[in-house]
Amino acid sequence: MNIFRFLGDASHFAAIIILVLKIWKTRSCAGLSGRSQIAFAIVFTTRYVDLLTSYVSLYNSLAKIIFIFSSYATLYLIYFRFKATYDGNHDTFRLEFLLVPCALLALIVNHRFQVVELLWTFSIYLESVAILPQLFLISKTGEAETITSHYLFSLGSYRGLYILNWIYRYYVQNYYDLIAISAGVLQTLLYCDFFYLYITRVIKGKAFALPA
């Protein structure tokens, strides 16, 4: 565990806490894409089936359990507990446009044609684009609550920090995984536009709104 990965994981945990806090404190999931959250639940479920087959560390197992549990808890909050506040009319991105290509790509580009490995590969590809329904929702409404923008900033930073971790591991441990790296770079690139607006608006105390 190097400093970049630690900060990346911390950022990921922070994102999840901010998300749950936003829903709980405002008693509302307005502005959140349930479809992105469904995608994240699928990502964690398919990636962490290895909880049953391989043990890395207590930290690793606990983190996996927390990610899986929190993703389903978030779905419960959006689709059941605070369903009345869910912005379903604007959350219209078709998830199958992400699921199908990611599944096909995982079947074609993978390290080994084996169930657990294919599920891991699929989850890596899906995670890289899972935020698209959320960004699509914001582009439709043209705005995001400040706390939602903090959530997105944390979530976007996490994979960006993982890229630094991969660079570090390449040089120090001669370890690299091209599938994780290319998907991670794409994932981070998708946030760039958001990062720009976050830094130029939210940090300066303004509301997050798309330029007219």
Binding site: V56, N60, D177
Partner: peptide, 10 residues
């Protein structure tokens, strides 16, 4: 593709 390594990342 190269052999998969142990997946120690999240």
């Amino acid at each position: 593709c190269k052999e998969p390594q142990i997946k120690d990342e999240l």
